[in-house]
């Protein structure tokens, strides 16, 4: 199967501290994968590298076979048209209504008519359970609603690669389950490749068939999510079980 995402020996440091040290990741087209790890291990950074928001110090990044890290501004813009991103703190535009926030990727792509934009925004907001909130500003929404608006904005343009940074953080279990259900339905419909970063290890394991774990700049686990409990790496086992005693 062709790779949608491929990182080879990816490195990134801040000062003398390496956050990513020769990381190799390959995601097949249409695959759903979860990324876990302790705080400040470079999970969000990896997502930002994958969409060219941060420059790597070394290694190669390929998105749909196209080299991203060495591409020109125009090539980068072209690649980003196929990537949807949900940011950790939602990154909703404060000065826009919910409708304008969700419509933004479609408006910017310039490839859709005003009528179609209206229809797609309406459909997507209904899918995330936010019909009737179109005219509200982000400041008027609860944390969970903001998350769902950000999710709608990531999904609305139906990109081939979806990167989610903590899609369920701060949400109650019912909303979390609905979000995963929605992502599953979206993936079944569009066959998009999804990479999800989450601290909710249990919820993520139920949703994704494959898990990656980052620790101290290295990829410590890359395999089926149901086998992670029996990983040979003690660090991985301790993290997944949430045990107090161990190398972490």
């Amino acid at each position: 199967m062709t790779a949608m995402v491929e990182c080879r020996s990816l490195c990134k440091s801040f000062g003398v501290r390496p956050l990513l040290d020769r990381v190799n990741v390959r995601l097949a087209s249409g695959e759903i994968c979860g990324l876990i790890g302790s705080a400040a291990t470079g999970k969000s950074l990896l997502l930002k590298l994958l969409c060219g928001l941060q420059a790597s110090d070394g290694g190669e990044i390929f998105i749909a076979g196209r080299r991203l890290d060495a591409s020109s501004k125009e090539e980068l813009q072209q690649s980003r048209k196929h990537i949807g991103m949900l940011f950790q703190n939602n990154a909703l535009f404060d000065f826009m209504t919910v409708r304008d926030n969700v419509a933004f990727p479609l408006v910017r792509s310039g490839a859709t008519s005003a009528e179609e934009i209206r229809e797609r925004v309406h459909q997507t907001l209904r899918a995330v359970g936010l019909s009737g909130s179109e005219e509200k500003l982000p400041a008027e929404l609860s944390g969970g609603m903001k998350k769902r608006v950000a999710l709608a904005r990531a999904l609305v343009a139906r990109p081939a690669l979806l990167l989610f940074d903590e899609p369920t953080a701060g949400l109650d279990p019912v909303t979390t389950a609905r979000i995963y259900e929605l992502l599953g339905a979206e993936q079944a419909r569009t066959r998009a490749t999804m990479l999800l970063v989450s601290s909710d290890v249990d919820g993520l394991r139920r949703f994704v068939p494959r898990l990656l774990m980052l620790h101290a700049g290295r990829l410590r686990y890359d395999g089926p999510s149901d086998k992670i409990d029996s990983s040979e790496d003690e660090v991985v086992r301790q993290f997944v079980r949430g045990a107090d005693e161990g190398p972490l």
């Binding site: 930002k48 980003r80 990154a91």
Partner: peptide, 13 residues
């Protein structure tokens, strides 16, 4: 600091 500038960049703005 709330990543809105990155969100603009993601939409090629």
């Amino acid at each position: 600091v709330t990543d809105q500038i990155d969100a603009l960049a993601m939409n090629n703005v």
